[in-house]
Design a protein around this nucleic acid. Structure first.
Ligand code: MN
Ligand code: MN
Ligand code: MN
Ligand code: MN
Lengths: 224, 224
DNA sequence: ATTATTATTTAGATACGTCTAAATAATTGT
DNA sequence: ACAATTATTTAGACGTATCTAAATAATAAT
């Protein structure tokens, strides 16, 4: 109607943080939560959240937390879309590894140009997931949600395809590279060590032992 | 040595403006000149130029103008490199036309990632000029300078290849598109109308009449 | 039900980038 | 050389984004 209201880079990052903390549905999140996620101070969050409330992108009640309005959700989804498309670009076209893309995508997601992102999408062949297995919202903000379970929550003996990571920090991703675990790999759960919650798994013919922390950050799509 | 000093987006745009006004060599430019180029006020320029001087990227003497230091020139060349590589990307990979790229490149040039720009360069096949015929500095800041002359400065009867535009504003570029004049085209200068300085030229078998203003914004590489 | 603890907001400060209006320096014209 | 004009800087203000320290509200513990 009147073109989207202009958001600054900071405002956009706050909107994204509120979106992610709200887990995609639209849970109310706390000031301290946002502060931690953004690595800022709670007082800064209060200031920003007031401004965002003025702009109509969040619902804010002092002491009660903050959530995105419909408009805010649209902005968040657009940012997530841009972030993930850029990540795909960096990996597919520019030879970045999956642990290097986040920081750069964090900048690229703020570039303003509708044509740019539409053409990028096309250039990449309309990918459905990013390099970490996270779904890419359509232009209209629609998701394709895959049924996936954390490795530590599936029964012994089942096997599945590794389709995503919960933690996508460089240390974790580098660990997976080192242990030759990649998205698309078939993983069979062999045994669970009850003492420490660790797992014995088989990845493409190789048997390895992973801690519970690793297991609770790998998503599988169950196949058998 | 200690990684390049961080420059804000605004600082970078000022450095680029000073660079362009100084015509590549390192002429001292005026406060008002920068203000006009940047579409800001002279007082804002004074403030910024003081800050840039503190940071050691410009030489500034009150009332006497401003020029880039060696360090400043390196930053400027890096920005020009990024700007032009992104322009090539937009045209070659994302189907932008040459009159649409500047605005987006103006944003993209500020993305911080050395790997990104090196890989982009590679992805594009190490192009030597941008969509407007302007040379792309190498990583070390070296130019390939082509010998080119403005159409209105060459003798009648000579012919050359159109290798660049002086003005690269959308209206001018759209005019060229409309008249089927593109980089790479061979142009023959047929006649000059002394009264208004306009020219009759032949572009790929078609004879057209262009004003002096058009002629003085087209670069040719003389072939005969 | 008080008290202690934690979460959140408010008050006041700083840095950045910009502006308008006023002051001052440099340049131009006579 | 002096006056008029133009260029440039300074002073003071504002909006954004952030912080620390202090005040207040909400929650947990006794
Ligand atoms: Mn970001
Ligand atoms: Mn991702
Ligand atoms: Mn720019
Ligand atoms: Mn260009």
């Amino acid at each position: 109607m009147f073109g989207t209201i202009f958001m600054t880079l900071s405002e956009e990052d706050y909107i994204k943080a509120i979106y992610h903390l709200g887990k995609g549905d639209n849970t109310t999140v706390s000031t301290n939560g946002v502060a931690e996620q953004m690595e800022t101070k709670p007082s800064s969050v209060t200031d920003m959240v007031k401004k965002l409330s003025e702009k109509g992108v969040v619902n804010y009640r002092p002491y009660k937390g903050v959530s995105l309005t419909e408009h805010g959700q649209k902005i968040a989804l657009s940012l997530v879309r841009k972030h993930r498309l850029w990540e795909v670009f960096l990996v597919e076209k520019l030879n970045f590894s999956w642990d290097e893309v986040h920081e750069v995508a964090e900048q690229l997601e703020h570039i303003k140009s509708e044509k740019l992102i539409d053409q990028l999408d096309k250039h990449l062949g309309f990918p459905e997931v990013d390099p970490h297995g996270d779904p890419i919202p359509s232009k209209k903000g629609e998701f394709k949600k895959t049924i996936k379970k954390l490795l530590n929550e599936v029964a012994i003996g089942t096997s599945g395809i590794c389709v995503g990571v919960k933690d996508s920090s460089p240390p974790f991703l580098k660990f997976l590279d080192k242990n030759k675990i990649a998205l698309g790999d078939t993983i069979l759960i062999l045994e669970k060590e009850e003492f420490d919650g660790s797992f014995y798994i088989q990845v493409k013919d190789i048997k390895i032992h992973i801690s519970n922390q690793i297991a609770s950050n790998l998503y599988l799509k169950i196949t058998a």
